[in-house]
Deep mutational scan, measured.
Amino acid sequence: MSIQHFRVALIPFFAAFCLPVFAHPETLVKVKDAEDQLGARVGYIELDLNSGKILESFRPEERFPMMSTFKVLLCGAVLSRVDAGQEQLGRRIHYSQNDLVEYSPVTEKHLTDGMTVRELCSAAITMSDNTAANLLLTTIGGPKELTAFLHNMGDHVTRLDRWEPELNEAIPNDERDTTMPAAMATTLRKLLTGELLTLASRQQLIDWMEADKVAGPLLRSALPAGWFIADKSGAGERGSRGIIAALGPDGKPSRIVVIYTTGSQATMDERNRQIAEIGASLIKHW
């Protein structure tokens, strides 16, 4: 067993022997301040990774656009098919120029040779490549099948209805392509620590998230040296922004954090800054 596999296998073990965790309302004060600064709703939840206990939450059962955070769930569904012998990570998928959609920095470079399922998941999570996500959605049967996968996990809230990039439209009061912070946090925890996926697939999923290259201005910008984070960000229309993450000190994750916002007129930089400040408060009061 590799060191990384050992780390993920012992996530519940280490967490069980940690000192009790206590909620700190100071972080919620910052979440509410972010709402004021952005002029928009902000949803927040913080779960203990081992027990699933909610440590703090704000608007945990209000719907927010998922945006690209759905790509972690998508690759979880792909990995479940791999575990069941219905898919192979090494299978190569070929596609054409007509398949390319807006923001496809990886797939646009491989029109000639195609990409493997493993490479597509890596591109979808680490670079948020939209064509990679659409190609992977095709392998599982489309958005409705991802929703069905989530329902089978016990998540009857999260739903995907459309493809990239239309799913980022974020129309107010439109339930399409949305989740709730509580539902997303619980589902992410199941994917990373539950028995739904094999140990190898859980490790692969967290490795992809740990290698995320496009979430630097968010929670990662607030992390002290030595902290662990595996995350996936999302951005959408109407001032929408979000991030889902597993993080913790001492090089291992111990909490799940989900943050979503929508309806702001603020710039992307300002949305990023507010999420980073929430992260800084979380870490300060850990």
Rank of each mutant, 00 (worst) to 15 (best):
G76K: 06
V117W: 11
S51A: 07
M180R: 10
G194N: 13
L111P: 04
L135G: 05
R118P: 07
A123R: 15
S254T: 09
E87W: 12
H94E: 06
H285Q: 05
F70A: 06
R91G: 10
N152L: 12
I283C: 13
T267F: 13
A230V: 12
T69G: 05
D174S: 04
Q97G: 10
Q203V: 07
L100F: 03
I243E: 06
I229F: 04
L146Y: 15
E237H: 09
T261A: 13
A246I: 07
P249T: 09
G216Q: 01
D231V: 06
S281N: 11
G234R: 00
L135S: 04
S57K: 08
K190A: 15
G114I: 01
R271P: 06
A276D: 13
T178L: 11
A124R: 09
H285M: 05
L191K: 03
D212F: 06
G236Y: 08
L136S: 14
T158Y: 09
P143T: 09
S68A: 00
K144C: 07
T147A: 06
T158W: 10
I244Q: 11
P105N: 00
K190R: 15
P65L: 05
L38N: 01
E87N: 15
A222N: 00
A34M: 13
I140S: 07
D212G: 12
G154R: 05
G263E: 14
K284D: 09
D231W: 06
A77N: 00
T193Q: 04
P143N: 03
L146S: 14
E237N: 11
Y44D: 00
V101F: 11
I45S: 00
W163K: 11
A235Q: 05
D250G: 07
E277D: 12
Q86W: 12
L191V: 07
T126W: 01
R241C: 04
L218Q: 14
E62T: 00
G90N: 06
I45G: 00
M115F: 10
T186K: 05
I229M: 04
T179W: 04
P60I: 12
E35K: 02
M180D: 09
G114Y: 05
G52N: 15
T179P: 01
G226V: 07
A245Q: 07
E35C: 15
K144D: 09
D36L: 05
G234M: 08
T126Y: 01
D83T: 06
W227F: 11
T126E: 01
I275H: 13
D36T: 09
K32P: 05
L137S: 14
G216M: 15
I171L: 03
E169A: 08
I229D: 07
T27K: 05
V82L: 09
I244S: 07
R91D: 12
M268V: 05
G239P: 13
H94N: 05
D269T: 04
T179R: 03
A235F: 03
D36P: 03
N50S: 10
G236L: 04
T138Q: 04
A183K: 05
L79F: 12
T158I: 02
P165C: 04
H285F: 11
T112W: 15
A77G: 00
A148C: 10
L55A: 12
I243C: 04
L120N: 15
R63G: 07
A170P: 07
S57T: 13
I45Y: 00
V72G: 03
T147P: 04
Q274H: 12
L205I: 08
Q88F: 11
I243W: 08
T158E: 05
P172F: 06
R220M: 12
T112H: 01
Q86G: 08
T186R: 01
E195M: 00
S57E: 12
S51G: 01
W163G: 11
L282K: 13
E169F: 13
F149I: 04
Y44S: 08
V101S: 12
E270N: 15
P181C: 03
L219I: 08
P165M: 06
E270G: 14
E169R: 09
T126A: 09
L205G: 10
P143L: 08
T126I: 14
W227L: 06
T126L: 08
R63K: 05
D212R: 13
F58T: 00
P60C: 05
T69D: 08
T158C: 06
L282Q: 04
A185D: 04
A280M: 15
K32H: 03
M66Q: 02
A280R: 09
L188C: 08
W163T: 12
Y95H: 05
C121E: 04
D155K: 07
L49E: 01
F70Y: 02
N130G: 15
L38Q: 05
E237R: 07
T131K: 04
A200E: 14
T179F: 01
K53T: 14
S254G: 05
G242W: 02
W208I: 02
A148K: 13
S264P: 13
I229G: 04
G90A: 03
V117E: 07
H285P: 03
M209W: 07
R92Q: 08
S80Q: 05
I140T: 07
T186F: 14
L47E: 09
L137I: 15
S254Q: 08
A200C: 13
N152E: 14
C121W: 01
G43W: 02
L197N: 10
M67P: 01
C75F: 09
T27N: 08
M66N: 07
D99Q: 11
A266Y: 14
G236S: 05
R176K: 15
A84G: 08
V78S: 13
L188P: 13
E108Q: 00
I171S: 03
I45V: 01
A34D: 12
H24Y: 05
A182G: 10
T179I: 01
E56A: 15
I275V: 13
V72H: 05
N173L: 10
G242Y: 03
E145R: 09
G142R: 10
M184P: 12
S233T: 11
A245D: 04
R63T: 07
N130P: 15
D174I: 03
L191N: 08
S96T: 15
P181W: 00
R81Y: 05
R118I: 03
A182E: 11
S254C: 12
E56K: 13
A170M: 10
L74D: 01
R81E: 05
F70Q: 05
H151G: 08
D231H: 09
I45R: 00
F149D: 12
A211I: 08
L49Y: 09
L146V: 09
R255W: 09
R189Y: 02
T187Y: 08
A215L: 04
L73R: 03
Q86I: 10
K53S: 10
T107G: 01
G90C: 01
A215E: 03
I171K: 00
R162Q: 06
L219S: 10
V82K: 15
G76Y: 04
V31M: 02
G194A: 09
L120G: 03
A222I: 07
G154L: 06
A222L: 12
A148D: 14
E237D: 09
Y44C: 05
P181Q: 01
T112F: 14
Q86N: 14
I206R: 12
K71G: 01
A133M: 00
R238N: 00
G43S: 07
R255G: 04
V29W: 00
G43H: 00
N98R: 00
D113F: 00
T69E: 06
I243M: 03
P65W: 04
T139K: 05
Q204H: 03
G114W: 00
L89H: 05
E62V: 00
S264G: 06
E210T: 11
M153C: 10
A280G: 09
G239H: 09
L137F: 11
D269Y: 02
R255M: 13
S96L: 01
R189K: 07
T262I: 15
L188I: 14
E46H: 11
R220W: 06
V214W: 06
R59F: 10
A132L: 01
R159V: 06
G52R: 06
M66G: 03
S264T: 14
T69K: 00
D33Y: 03
R220K: 08
L247T: 13
H285S: 02
R176C: 14
M180T: 12
T139R: 06
S233H: 06
E46S: 12
S281P: 07
L136W: 05
A246N: 09
T178H: 07
R238K: 12
L100W: 01
L218D: 15
L218G: 06
T193E: 10
R63W: 14
I54M: 11
V214G: 14
E145Q: 09
E145G: 11
G154M: 06
D36H: 05
F70G: 02
T147G: 11
D83N: 15
L111W: 03
R255S: 06
G226H: 13
A235Y: 04
R41I: 14
L73P: 12
A225E: 14
D212M: 03
R41D: 12
Q203C: 13
L160H: 11
A246K: 01
I275Q: 14
Q97L: 14
K144N: 11
R59I: 02
E166P: 10
Y103F: 02
E56Q: 15
R91A: 06
R91K: 10
R118M: 05
L247A: 11
D174E: 05
A40P: 06
Y95I: 02
T187E: 14
M209T: 09
D207H: 11
K252R: 09
L191S: 09
A246D: 04
K232L: 06
P172S: 08
